[in-house]
Structures are given as structure tokens and as C-alpha cells.
Design a protein around this nucleic acid. Structure first.
Lengths: 213, 213, 213, 213
DNA sequence: GATGAATGAGCGTTCATTCAT
DNA sequence: AATGAATGAACGCTCATTCAT
């Protein structure tokens, strides 16, 4: 058996068999590189150099550059999920906007705790060309995820029911992305406590718009 | 040293001295390349080849790759401005949301008439790392531009007055960007007539939010 | 040191000790690879993957890539020999040209039944650099084989006796090779029935030359 | 003008503009490499190293490895043509076999004077896969060339007229190739004077076959 | 100022083979 | 004996920029 059962196995068995220490070194090197230079500009050379592994070994662990990136992305997603799953219990019951507020707060916390993951997610979220180069045409999990909540929000009457769900989803995603970027640009991850005040405003806009009364 | 007062002089004098025909050829080649491959993947080689100018000349005209890109961006901005300035006369008087609707319509028209410019703007707008690599930390013109209108909107009472102007500006920009992408992804530039229906919804959300009543 | 009397031991003992099933799997993988890519372009990686054996094992079974190729070649030779030995009984008695005609027919049959062997033989036969890289300077078996028949042919008076035997041998070999290639290029293995018509001409030329009378 | 007029221009202008000394150095390095290792095994690295040019320059001169090889081949062809064109004047009048004898003699002389060219031609002639990889599907000049003479020979009554011309052509080519190889293997280029004796036999076989009378 | 050749570090990837377990 | 990870040189090729004319 050479372990060929799955179609494409993101990192190869050889990578998962590595000692944790070595694996972490590689992940760290990749993370640093991808976060600071973005996928396209990142260099395998730099990564293997910083990870202090021979170049040949890299290709024993990963199919190619994309494969490594995919793996890093899935780590990021898994990590982010940890932050969001805490919200799940109340997901069915609470007000859509309260839920959203919490999701944002957790998102920011995630960004604070894992700035490199945050960078990488952002690159991916912002560059649809890259997204489809890496993941093909599969619709993004984020989209599915949101639409589920929006549907629930509509059902609960929190959200007006005369709008297209996917349209709302995209609008919120865009808005949220912009919001996060803006906050971090302005305050960085350190003054995270001020987030609430901004989130309030974000929710306010989303909920009631910006029209004068 | 050319003894010019500016720090970096976008295209050099030598470029502006060129015949218009030659200049256009270079611009066209650059435009095609940047629009189809993005800044980082674009190749000076390809550009000079298509522009049919000697490679040495390129560096006589422009400081480097970034410099050329900057120039292209400024052309894009200037072109876009032409679409927007038609709105100026009524700018002071009309309702902010009517104005915004018009701005969006013009934005779409701009994208339709100049798809290459549209591509390039989008790349820039979506990739803040690129933005700051190219333009340094200078705040974007777009931001300034919007804030002017928002201020006016607030003064007129169209927009609620309890929100930070730059915050609103960024929210609208993000939202607008996402909106545009979504529309074009879904309908392309050909079915542009359907834009109004979507714009209505966009304005609706922006104005009144998504809360159920 | 394994204390074997031979200089290099083609496949190692470890290989011959393998179960037939395993051995066949390896042979098949190697055959497919060598036949489709040629020796130099063939990859040990691909072979071990398709044979589903560990890479380390490969080097337990064979000295190196050349060693495996040698083995495959010897299998090809053995297989071809099976086709030719059917002709042996009559070898001493029948006319040289009749015999040759039969040899060709059998050669074609061999190619039809074992296209991969055929490919590999052809590569080797056509690339003397490869031949000597693989087998060193040892004179080819084919040469020896032919010369035996030619000598018989001369003795029987079928072949003129004023020519050097090795010279004739090489001429026939070359001619036969070209003939085979030409036929297969033109008709493929499927329309094998037309071979007789061509063989007649081939024998005709060989026998009587191409001079006008 | 950047010199784009021809479809693909084998070596680029930049190469032809080089000083003869430099050009020769590159040709020599390429010739040595290709002749000793064959196309596929030859390394651009080795070539640029021996030619003492930067790797980047290589790709300024040639499109790629194939392009360089093509150029070398065309030099070989041109050189060989010089040897053959001496025969042209009498081509129409003299006996086909006399002409062929001369062609062979000149071929051998060519091989003697330009052993590297000879190696390269041989690789190409013997490896039809390589041939079509390099030159596409265009039918070989050699084939056309020969068929012309054979047709003439048939018309003159030198060659029997009941055989297919392309068939004869291929048979002679194969035979000639094998003949050349055999001679050189046996005597090398030094004892070239013995060639006549062998050529006589070759022509004899071709003309009258090998049948005993 | 115009030119286009020169440059060499860099790219992602593959390779046959060795070695530690 | 069996394994499969380790290895790093080598591959063909592109790049933005500099420099000599």
C-alpha cells in the first residue's frame, strides 16, 4: 500500500508522519512567507531555507506550492472555526444581528491571536482569482455558511424578506471585510477593546442603513 | 539627478516628450498586460515587446515597473473621473442617495467602456498590500472624494449625523466594491440594463439597512 | 560483497527470490514506462509507484536503472527467441531466403503480440550510444545469431561466397530494421496481413538487388 | 522594428549579431555537448558554462534548447550539403550506382572532417521521435532528396521499375546508414582509404543482391 | 537620448540514489 | 531483507534591471 486511496491528499502522508517539532517549523516558515508576501510572490526557496529542510524533502511532503498553501489555508480555516463554533449553541435562537456582532468580535479576536492566518485568509477572500486557482470552482464555505444564517434571520423576521439571500450574503461579507480592515488599519490588534464601539456602528448601519430620519 | 522637485516623477520627462502615437502604443501594451495578468505577474518583457519599443527605452521613460503601473493607475483614475464629473453640477443639490445611484451607474458604464481600466482598478482596490507597495501610505483619493460627498449628505440631512465620516466612507466603498463584483460576476457587462434593479436594492440596504420592520 | 562470480549481476538474488506475482508487477511497470518514454526519460519514481513497491526495495532488487533496463531487455530477447526457435528445426535444410522470410514474419508477429518489447528493442537497436552505455562493448547477440545463418546460407550456395560474413550480417540487420519500421509506420500492427507483399519485395531486393536488367 | 517579421527565427537576431569568435565558442560548446550526450541528455548549463556566457544570454540568443539544436542541425545540413553539391553536375548523366558510390564516399568524408556533425546527424536520423519533436511532421529532406535520384535512376533503366519508390528509398537509407556505422565502427575515420573496398561491396549487394548464382 | 545586449539570481520542480530504522 | 524518508544537485527557463555604445 502506498496510501493512494484519496484523490489528492493535501499534505502527503510523509508530512503528517513528521515529528511535531519539524512540522511546526515548516508551517511557521510557510506562514511567515505567505503572510508577508502573498501566495504568488512567496518563494519555496525561502520557505525551505527558513524551515531548514532540503528542497527535495519539501516535495516529499507536499505535491507543490499550491498544495502547501492549501494546507496552510485549511489550518487557518480550522483555527477560525474554533472561534466561531463557540457561537453555535445560541445560533438558532438569538437575534441575527446579535449573532453577527459576536461573529465579528470573534473574527477580530482570531485576527488578534493569529495575525498570519488573518493575512492569508484576507488575501484569499480578496482575490477571487487566487481563490479559484487554489480551490477550483467549489463555492466558498464562507458563502454557504453565511447564507444559512441569513435564511434563519429572515425566517425569524430579523431581516427583511424582500431581498435575495445571496445578494445579502455578499453585501454583508463585503461590508464585514471592509469593516475589519478599517478597524485594524486604524487601531491595530492591540487596542482591541475599542472594537465594540465600532461594531455597534457597523451593525447599526447594516440594520438600519445610513439614512437620516 | 534631473533636479526635479518631486520625489519620484511618475513617468519621466522623456516619456511625456514622446509622440502621442508612441505613448498610446506603450499605454495600450501596459494596459493589456496589467489587466490580464495583474501587477505582480505582468512582465516588462511582454510589454516592451507588444509596444515595440526597445527595452532600454522603457527605463528611460519609467523608473521601473511600479512607476509604469502608477502611471496607468493615474490614467484610470483620470478616466473614471470623467465619468463622475458629469455628476458634479447637481452634486450640491440632489439627495445623497440619488447621487450615489448615479455614481454607481457611471461606475458601471466606466467598467463597460474601459474593461482594462476596470480590471486594474479592481486589483488595486482589492489588494491593499499592492496598494501600499505602489502608493505608499498616502490616503487614497477615493476616500477623500467620498468623504466630501458624505459630509454634504450629512449636512443636507440625507445621512444620519451620529456616525464617523471616514467610517461611513469605507463602509460604502466596501459595499460598493462587493456590489459591483457581484453584479458583474452574475450578469457580465453585456446585460448592463439589469443593473437598475440591483442598484435599487443596494441603495435600499444602504439607506434603510436590512432589519425586518 | 555477495561473493558472486559475475561482475554485475543483472537483477540481484533478492529479485529472483520474489513471488512471481510481485516480479510480474514490477516487470509490467518497467515495461510500460520504458516502452512509452524510452530509457533516458523513464523515471524510477513512476515505475516503483506503478509497481507499488517501496523505492528502497527497488535498489534491493536491482543495482540501478541500467540494471533494470538490462533485465527487461534480456526478457525481450528471450521472448523474441521463442518466436525464432520454432524455425530452428528446418534451419539447416531450407533455403536461406525462405528462412529469412519466416524470421521476418515471426519478428512481426512478435511485435504484434508484444508491442512493449518491440518498442524497447527498437530503441536499443536504433541507439547505439544507449546500447553501449547499457551493454558495454560486447558484440550483440543478434549479430552472432545472424552470422550463424548466413554462414549456413553461404555453405548451401544460397548466398554468394565472395562477401564478408559480418558485413552481410550488418547489412541485413539494417535493412530489416528499416523495413520493419517502414511497414509499421505505413500499416500499423493491425493490417498485418499485407506484410507478405512487402516482405516479398524486401527479399527480392536483398536477393537480387535493385539493378535494372 | 524589433525584428519580428519571420514566424520563428531559429537563432535570434541577437545571436547572428555576435562577433564570430563568440558565436563559434557557443557553437563549439553546443556541438561538443550534443554530440557526446545526445539532445535529450544535453544540458544547457554545461553548454553555457563551456561557452562562458551567462545563462541569461543564452536565452537572448536562442528561443530554447530545441532552437539551439535546430540551429546546430541546420549547420550540419549546410556543411553536408557542401560535400554533396560537388556531385550535382554529373547527377543527371551518370549511372545511379556510380552516383550513390560517390555520395557515400562524400558522406564518409563529411563524417571524417566533422565528426561532431556526424554524431548529431546520426542521432537525428536514427531517432524518428526526436526528429518529429524537433522538426514537427515535415517530411525529411533526406527522403525527398533520395527519391529524386531514385526516380531518375529508374527512368535511366539503372533501377528495376517494379518497386515502389519510397520503399526503395527507405531501404537504401537504412542500408546506407547501417553501412556507414559499420565501417566507422570497424575502421574509424582514420583508415578512410579502405572505404572503397567496402563501398564496392555495398553497391554490389544493393545492385545485385546477395543471392548465389 | 536611444538602444538592445548583458546579466545572474531566481523560479518551481524532478531526479536517481543513499541511509537510517 | 524491507522500507520510505532524506537528499541536494540539476533541470530548463524568466526576470527586472544595468550598462556599454
Amino acid at each position: 500500500m502506498t496510501g493512494q486511496s484519496q484523490e489528492k491528499e493535501m499534505p502527503k502522508q510523509t508530512f503528517t508522519n513528521l515529528t511535531e517539532e519539524k512540522r511546526k517549523k515548516i508551517i511557521k516558515a510557510a506562514l511567515d512567507e505567505f503572510a508577508s508576501k502573498g501566495f504568488r510572490e512567496s518563494s519555496i526557496n525561502t520557505i525551505v531555507q527558513n524551515a531548514m529542510i532540503p528542497k527535495g524533502s519539501f516535495y516529499q511532503y507536499f505535491e507543490d506550492k499550491r498544495d502547501l498553501f492549501k494546507h496552510i489555508c485549511s489550518l487557518a480555516a480550522a483555527e477560525k472555526f474554533k472561534y466561531l463554533e463557540k457561537l453555535m449553541p445560541e445560533a438558532g435562537e438569538s437575534d441575527f444581528f446579535d449573532l453577527l456582532r459576536e461573529m465579528i468580535a470573534q473574527g477580530i479576536r482570531f485576527g488578534k491571536d493569529h495575525p498570519e492566518y488573518y493575512c492569508i485568509s484576507n488575501e484569499l477572500l480578496n482575490d477571487r482569482a487566487l481563490m479559484s486557482e487554489i480551490f477550483g470552482e467549489q463555492t466558498s464555505r464562507t458563502d454557504d455558511f453565511f447564507q444559512h444564517f441569513i435564511n434563519a434571520g429572515i425566517k425569524r423576521g430579523d431581516i427583511r424578506n424582500d431581498l435575495d439571500v445571496t445578494f445579502i450574503s455578499r453585501m454583508i461579507t463585503s461590508l464585514g471585510l471592509g469593516f475589519g480592515e478599517y478597524f485594524i488599519e486604524k487601531h491595530g490588534f492591540e487596542n482591541i477593546e475599542r472594537i465594540d464601539e465600532y461594531t455597534d456602528n457597523f451593525i447599526l448601519i447594516l440594520k438600519n442603513g445610513i439614512a437620516g430620519r
